[in-house]
Write a protein that binds this DNA or RNA. Structure first.
Lengths: 338, 338
DNA sequence: TTGTAGGCGTTATCAT
DNA sequence: ATGATAACGCCTACAA
């Protein structure tokens, strides 16, 4: 049988109100009584029942986390950032994955709300309009990750995707590349992939290069998919001198396809990635990438949520964290004459 | 304001008891009344408060999951298996990571218990005696992952580590290798790494080979660590013809060290891994490995937990899932004469 | 400073 | 078949 506040009260010969006070407002209780109660609490090993507590307080010290996949390099590192800091605030997280299914997303939003989660950290690959609407209506704080959503009402943490893609393209250009393919992700409601595309385009145009649609392909975040895309390039005899993938996994898929077809990376084709998950520096050749501070994105999201829970909406609604370009082994100067 | 059962009762002009019945035991209510109530529920968008519910039922439909790391390939795939199946049982998971810290493990065990989790899925790198003891005392079901723990009282899911290591060593032996290094993990209280070591030893002895302690090193699951270990091998001029690593990440660390030192894999040195995380077939050369059914381990753990929650302890307490050896590109026949 | 009692939103046990 | 009402374990006015 679990020991309750009542047991403690009886044994300490006080009312349950006093015991409650000892726990929540110790200063309202005489030192003498407080000590006696504390002693009994200890002796009996009493721990307040959080369920009962949250029924009356309407708070759970629980934060819901909704992600598309759990077994994903990108997500994993963000999760670590979240989980690492959440406990210092004495919160716990309740987690689910949606596979990017929008109905699931809405369902879990509701479930977590019902479970009295005090806030929700939300992440998806493709933002859906209905989901945005649903989030806007929720009366607990929601923070989105990795989205510079155009809907300013929803707080978010991410990097500047436009600038990052711009810089990477510029880097390739400076290396002498002119045939630069872009393997990007499918379009969705917000500016995520679009921003990257714009950055790419802008860099090219500054070099007086027009976008060649043949070089632009849509992937779906998976390795196999980008592998196939590059195989298509090869089959179509369209061989860019550089391939810019908007995720590391896609970059690796591209490199594998190139290698498997006898092309040398980076000697013949440069391939660069985006995100800098750990795999990017484990793989050989190590990937040249745009580094996102994944761990920080997670911990900043937590801070934002907790600020909002506490009612201090002081901070920015849209947080842009710094990225950086890391040059490693998967890219080099173009051999082609310009 | 959230709509409660009371609101529904009033609007439908019945007692809250009836509303409750409509939700939990519809057959106890006249069809006519039931329909009216259902209508009001729909109209008002009423969703029962799970917190109040679990206060009286003493159940939360919550299962705690404790893992060492969240941003880990191995853990991630198991987590997916867990999360995938948990929702079909209408449970949710509450997650934390411990970094393998034993005090944290105990702390979270308690926290999840307090939060009324109905069961806990537990995973760690190194099993500690105190933790085992703590688990044994808990009065909610706990299932351990990846442990053939000697303490039969704790249910667990894993593969047969002894047999798997035996088979892998035998495979290497058959390929003509005689100098087979083993990079294993640190010892802990249970049979995990030990079983693997025994399997390795047994295979060798069947070939009349004595274990050469110089070839046995202790890693810590990290890539950097096994990288260093192999660098040490090279420095000490101890070059095995094959290296058996008890995790894929360590195998990749080993290959990287070899590559960076000018050795060819598998031409000069074969390297094999253990687990078969996705990375194992993404990396080049693709890793020869012992495949563990990670996703299944997760989902079986869930089934076991739920069985136990429902009181059917019918199934086995120790579940051993099948593994298999997958030969890929990181291993080949030994060039050395025997 | 401490105790009494009402309430949080359900479920479950009695009656009716 | 339905309705009162007492739990569930805790917090918090309000009283004393």
């Amino acid at each position: 049988m679990k020991v309750t506040i009542k047991d403690v009260a009886e044994k300490a010969d006080v009312s349950i109100a006093t015991v409650s006070r000892v726990i929540n407002n110790p200063h309202l209780v005489t030192e003498k009584v407080r000590e006696r109660v504390l002693e009994v609490i200890n002796e009996l090993g009493f721990r307040p029942n959080p369920v009962a507590r949250s029924l009356v307080m309407k708070k759970n010290r629980l934060i819901g986390v909704i992600v598309p996949e759990l077994s994903n390099f990108f997500v994993g590192e963000i999760m670590n950032g979240i989980d690492e800091i959440i406990h210092t605030h004495e919160y716990d997280i309740i987690v689910c994955h949606t596979r990017g299914d929008h109905e699931q997303e809405i369902r879990y939003l509701d479930i977590f709300y019902d479970k009295q989660a005090e806030g929700i950290i939300f992440m998806t690959w493709n933002l859906d309009n209905k989901v945005v609407e649903h989030i806007s209506k929720m009366d607990i704080p929601v923070v989105m990750i990795n989205r510079n959503t155009s809907n300013l009402a929803i707080p978010s943490v991410s990097i500047d995707n436009y600038k990052a893609a711009y810089e990477m393209t510029q880097y390739l250009l400076k290396k002498g590349h002119r045939k630069i393919a872009l393997i990007r992700n499918s379009i969705d409601v917000d500016a995520f992939g679009l921003e990257q595309y714009k950055g790419y385009k802008q860099a090219l145009s500054e070099y007086g290069i027009e976008v060649n649609e043949k070089y632009i392909r849509y992937g779906n975040f998976s390795m196999d998919n980008s592998y196939k895309i590059v195989m298509d390039f090869i089959e179509e005899k369209i061989i860019p001198t550089a391939i810019f993938c908007t995720s590391d996994i896609m970059a690796i898929g591209a490199i594998n396809a190139l290698k498997d077809s006898g092309y040398k990376v980076p000697e013949e084709v440069s391939v660069v990635g985006f995100n800098d998950v750990r795999l990017a520096s484990i793989y050989r050749p190590r990937l040249t990438v745009i580094h996102q501070p994944l761990f920080n994105i997670g911990s900043v999201a937590v801070k934002m949520i907790i600020d909002r829970i506490k009612g201090k909406n002081s901070g920015e609604n849209i947080v842009i964290l710094p990225h950086r370009l890391i040059e490693r082994e998967s890219s080099s100067s173009s051999r082609e004459e310009n």
